[in-house]
């Protein structure tokens, strides 16, 4: 038994290193001094942990203990705006996605109707569309409609990613709920009240997971944002970060802002792992 548990803890250690080391190696730069960053080879760990770069990206100067001052980043306006826009856009996208997808997935998962397979295929087609091929059409459409550089425009385009993808996942989830609609009909629930008062509370774990997935897709969306809102007032965090990749690379600030992008999803991840047993795609054993 002891042998097994040593093996197990070794496996856990390897898995954890595998999962967080790439993150660590990059984010470590946020704490390296400019001199350390220029070193070859690079050090495993920073000498001191100071949060100067975080002050910098949000527009404040910071005086290090060593005596030198790192100035506020020129990108800070974009970063602050990116965080606010990102939170705003992702929240709206999440809410709209759920409003759209929950009834849609429910209908596809639980009801039989004509042309269902064809419509499912349409959803699959929407999942399969590569953003890189719809960029130009969207760009030209947005220029004509005046939606370029607007948060509304980005919300609409992000919905085209979240809706089909989340729908695809939720359909499988809804399919596995027990067939309580039959019971509900005997008890005199209408279809709508059955969905609202019985299915929704029953499916709350799955819907919560769907919400997180929608939020993350929106929060992390880069390709459309780069073309449609980069450099405008509707800028989101990913595109703001790409500013650091430009002519004057600031690796420390870049790493600090990447850490900022990971924080909200990480909080979600902690929340998600507790709902893990609820998200099975197969029939639960009765």
């Amino acid at each position: 038994m002891a042998k097994r548990s040593i093996f197990l803890y070794l496996a856990i250690a390897v898995a954890i290193v595998w999962s967080i080391f790439p993150i660590y190696w990059f984010c470590r730069m946020a704490f390296l001094t400019p001199n350390e960053i220029r070193l070859f080879p690079q050090p495993f760990m920073p000498q001191v942990f100071e949060f100067g770069t975080f002050y910098n990206i949000f527009g404040y100067d910071y005086e290090y203990a060593a005596g030198y001052v790192s100035g506020a980043s020129g990108q800070s306006n974009q970063i602050i705006r990116g965080v606010l826009n990102g939170l705003f856009i992702s929240s709206i996208v999440t809410v709209i996605t759920l409003l759209i997808v929950v009834p849609l997935a429910y209908v596809f998962a639980r009801m039989e109707f004509r042309h269902k397979q064809k419509l499912l295929f349409a959803v699959l087609l929407a999942v399969a569309l590569p953003p890189v091929s719809t960029l130009i059409p969207f760009y030209s459409m947005y220029v004509q409609l005046g939606l370029n550089g607007t948060r509304f425009g980005l919300i609409v385009v992000t919905l085209t990613i979240t809706v089909p993808f989340v729908a695809w996942m939720l359909i499988g989830y809804f399919r596995n709920l027990p067939p309580i609609e039959r019971l509900a009909r005997i008890d005199g629930y209408s279809r709508t009240s059955c969905l609202l008062t019985l299915i929704l509370p029953l499916a709350k774990s799955g819907i919560a997971v769907a919400a997180v997935i929608a939020f993350l897709f929106s929060w992390n969306e880069y390709t459309y944002a780069l073309v449609l809102v980069n450099g405008t007032s509707a800028n989101t965090l990913p595109t703001a970060i790409s500013g650091f990749l430009g002519q004057y690379p600031e690796p420390g600030n870049l790493a600090a802002s990447v850490i900022v992008t990971i924080i909200p999803p990480a909080l979600f991840a902690y929340f998600l792992q507790r709902h893990v047993t609820e998200m099975s795609l197969v029939d639960p054993v009765r």
Partner: peptide, 10 residues
């Protein structure tokens, strides 16, 4: 689960 929180550009 952490890698899942990282966007593809990051």
């Amino acid at each position: 689960f952490l890698p899942w929180c990282v966007s593809s550009y990051a």
